[in-house]
C-alpha cells in the first residue's frame, strides 16, 4: 500500500480523487435508498392499505390481546403430539431419500461436462431443477393429493419433488468439479467402467452428496410440518385441528414442538456434516 493511498491528505491530487470517489459513493447510496423508499411507499399505498382488513383488526390494544391469547402454551396437549411429530420426521426422512434417488439421474443429465443425452437431456434436467425449486411445496402437495389421495404418501412425494432441484443442482456442480486424474489412472490400469465409478468417482461425490442431503433433510422437517395443512398428515394436521377449534394455547404448543424438533434436527445435522468434512 502506497503512502498516498494510506493517507490521502499528503497528496492533493489523491485527496481530490478520494473525495470525488467518496462523494460518488454517497450519491449511489442516496439514490438506492430513495429508490427503495419510493418502492415501499408505492407498495404500501397500492396493496397494504387497501388490502388489509383494518376494521377487523381494531386498535393497538385489541392486537395485543389477540397475541396474548396465544400465551401461555397448553401443556396438556403434549402427550398427543408425540405421534404426529414422529410422522412428520419420518415423512421428512423418506421424502429426502426419495428426492435423493430422483436427483441422481437429473444431476448426471444436468452436469455440463457429461451431458450423456446431449443438449436436449441437459436442458430437460436444468428445466426440471428450476421447476422443482420454483413450485412451492404446498403446490406439489396439492398435485399429489389429487393423484394419490390424502395421507403421508402425498407428502413424501411432494417433499421429494421439492428437494430434487436443490440436491441435483449441487450434485451436478460436484460432478462438474470432479478430479479426473484418479479415473484416468484406473483406466490406465485397465479397470472396468463400473469399478472406475465405484472407486474413483463415488468417493469424490459422496461427502458433498451426503452433506447436501442432511442439509435438505433439515429443511424438509420444516416443510413437512406445513404439508399437513393440505392433507399430508403429521404436525401440520394437529396445527390445523387446534386452529379450527380456536385453541390458541394449543397452537403455541404445536409451534414450540416444531421449534424443538427443528433445533434438535439442526444440532444433529451440523454434527453429522462436520464429521463428513
Amino acid at each position: 500500500m502506497s503512502a498516498a493511498q494510506a493517507m490521502p491528505g499528503s497528496n492533493p491530487a489523491a485527496l481530490a480523487r478520494w473525495r470525488q470517489a467518496r462523494r460518488r459513493g454517497h450519491m449511489a447510496v442516496l439514490a438506492v435508498t430513495s429508490l427503495l423508499l419510493a418502492l415501499s411507499v408505492w407498495a404500501v399505498q397500492g396493496s397494504v392499505i387497501p388490502g388489509t382488513d383494518w376494521r377487523r383488526m381494531g386498535g393497538f390494544a385489541e392486537v395485543v390481546t389477540g397475541f396474548g391469547r396465544f400465551l401461555p402454551p397448553d401443556p396438556t396437549l403434549l402427550p398427543t403430539l408425540f405421534e404426529p411429530a414422529v410422522q412428520t420426521i419420518l415423512i421428512a426422512i423418506i421424502g429426502t431419500l426419495l428426492g435423493a434417488v430422483m436427483s441422481l439421474p437429473v444431476a448426471v443429465l444436468g452436469a455440463a461436462n457429461l451431458r450423456p443425452l446431449g443438449m436436449p437431456g441437459y436442458l430437460l434436467a436444468r428445466g426440471l431443477m428450476t421447476m422443482s425449486r420454483s413450485i412451492h411445496e404446498i403446490v406439489w402437495a396439492l398435485i399429489f393429493v389429487s393423484a394419490v389421495g390424502l395421507g403421508a404418501f402425498a407428502g413424501i412425494l411432494a417433499l421429494a419433488c421439492r428437494s430434487v432441484g436443490f440436491v441435483s443442482k449441487l450434485l451436478a456442480e460436484a460432478i462438474e468439479r470432479i478430479d479426473m486424474r484418479p479415473v484416468e489412472a484406473m483406466k490406465a490400469q485397465g479397470a472396468r467402467p463400473l469399478d472406475m465409478v465405484r472407486h474413483a468417482i463415488v468417493p469424490q461425490l459422496l461427502p458433498i452428496g451426503l452433506g447436501t442431503l442432511i442439509f435438505e433433510w433439515d429443511i424438509n422437517v420444516n416443510r413437512a410440518a406445513v404439508l399437513g395443512l393440505v392433507g399430508a398428515g403429521g404436525l401440520g394436521l394437529t396445527f390445523h385441528n387446534q386452529l379450527i377449534a380456536s385453541n390458541y394455547a394449543g397452537v403455541t404448543t404445536v409451534l414450540l414442538t416444531i421449534l424443538a424438533i427443528i433445533l434438535v434436527g439442526e444440532a444433529i445435522s451440523v454434527r453429522l456434516r462436520r464429521r463428513l468434512v
Binding site: S47, G66, F67, R223, L243
Partner: peptide, 19 residues
C-alpha cells in the same frame, strides 16, 4: 424454524385476512 405459511396463519388469526 416455523414455516412462513404457519406464521401467516398465526397472523391471520390475530389480524384477520389481508395483505
Amino acid at each position: 424454524a416455523i414455516h412462513e405459511m404457519i406464521w401467516a396463519i398465526v397472523f391471520i388469526m390475530v389480524l384477520g385476512f389481508g395483505v
